[in-house]
């Protein structure tokens, strides 16, 4: 369970996250949604320890994340865009991360096949397309089978087949009781995956409950219309 307590993040005078209190439940798939600049990526970065909170703290399984870097062993992260050292080969990037994680990744067989990366394994990064880089990115998130997955706009740049494969893996991870946090602007893509929805607007939580409750509360028939309804309420 990820517990976010009174989390505030400021960049200069701008408050990006404003006293966020949140519980992300174990074994659930949670979508963090909101318009651009609402604080979604900053919230994910706070969980990953990339950004230092101005105030508040985060615990994972009751342990404060600020105390150690070891908690990230249980996290697989896939950012919006991937950039790797351009002259390294795909296999070298995988080896590097595998070394850092003390060699417990299964990159030789693991998930390279579903993403069709095996034929790219000896290619240099600068020779890869944006979509293939995103597949490599996804592979890095999955290859250590962690308990928690964090995906920031994961399907951007993936071709339809990889997109389908990606969702299939997410479903499998869900059935394995993994905790999954996902942000996306393409709501129809994640509708069938998520259990819970958190809606952020201007750094504050405007909705935090199950998908069913969101749809019932907004009297709509799908996630996209439900989120549109919340956004309209916020504008009013």
């Amino acid at each position: 369970m990820i517990n976010i307590i009174n989390l505030t993040k400021r960049y200069g005078k701008a408050t990006v996250l404003d006293s966020i209190n949140l519980i992300i439940k174990k074994g659930r798939t949670t979508a963090i949604l909101g318009p651009n600049g609402s604080g979604k990526t900053t919230l994910l970065k706070c969980i990953l320890g990339l950004v230092n909170p101005y105030q508040g703290y985060i615990t994972i399984d009751s342990k404060p994340i600020a105390d150690s870097d070891a908690y990230r062993r249980n996290i697989g992260y896939m950012p919006q865009s991937a950039k790797f050292p351009p002259n390294l080969k795909v296999k070298e990037v995988l080896q590097l991360v595998n070394h850092i994680r003390n060699g417990n990744g299964h990159f030789k067989y693991g998930l390279l096949n579903p993403f069709d990366l095996n034929k790219e394994i000896n290619k240099k990064i600068h020779a890869l397309s944006g979509g293939t880089l995103q597949k490599l990115n996804a592979n890095l998130a999955f290859m250590f089978s962690p308990d928690i997955y964090i995906f920031d706009e994961p399907t951007a740049g993936l071709d339809p087949i990889s997109n389908r494969d990606f969702k299939e893996i997410i479903r499998k991870k869900k059935s394995d009781n993994s905790t999954i946090i996902i942000t996306s602007h393409i709501l129809s893509e994640i509708e069938n995956l998520v259990d819970d929805v958190i809606f952020l607007h201007e750094g504050k939580i405007r909705f935090n409950d199950t998908l069913e409750k969101l749809i019932t509360n907004t009297k709509t028939d799908n996630l996209e219309n439900a989120i549109a309804s919340i956004m309209e309420q916020n504008h009013e």
């Binding site: 320890g49 990339l50 870097d69 990230r72 950012p79 950039k83 050292p85 850092i100």
Partner: peptide, 17 residues
């Protein structure tokens, strides 16, 4: 500057800054 995203990726691993 060009490695910023890669540095981010490294820091999401269990590694000291």
């Amino acid at each position: 500057y060009n490695s910023r995203e890669f540095i981010q990726l490294l820091l999401t691993q269990p590694v000291k800054r």
